[in-house]
Amino acid sequence: MSNEEQLVTITSQDGVGVPCKKEAALLAGVVKNMIEEEDEDETNITEDLKLLKVTGETLKKVVEFLEHHVDEPMETLSETPLQMTKLGECVGPEWYVKFADIDREEMFLLVKAANYMDVPPLLDLMCLAITMTIMDKSPEEVRGIFSKVNPSLAAPPQAAEADVEAAA
């Protein structure tokens, strides 16, 4: 069986198993390492690909991304300095823009997952998406975005006002 047809099942920390094409799964550095190790041991690779830091819901999204990326790779259309304020103008094709149109909390979870699973294109996409949500926002709005993920960030830093005065 070729890589394209072969399926592997990746299991999340909460025990949800998500099937994924092997070719797509190899895009994730962590999974690739696991598969390579198992290949060396000549064990059954469809078993026991468990990720300890990714939840089932997030894992499904990552797999969705990986499988689409195999068929239609993502293109980054804009480098720094970003001239655009919409994600659609920075990445292509359109599927990726729709994919990134998710809750902010989910966005941060995907960043973590992409970083843990070593999926650079997903990390790039999510970082761009987060950048777009932060751009041209006031400190209070940015704090609001981060505090949803981490409530301890809801309080402003000391003397933030002093900085604002100096810069304004």
Partner: peptide
């Protein structure tokens, strides 16, 4: 809790100095 170092470095890399200042006012 929020963003890993690589991701944050990448986000900061995209931002305009004005946005960086606003970000700095968000949290220590």
């Amino acid at each position: 809790q929020v963003l890993c170092e690589d991701a944050l470095a990448q986000v900061l890399h995209y931002l305009h100095p004005r946005d960086l200042l606003r970000m700095s006012e968000t949290s220590k």
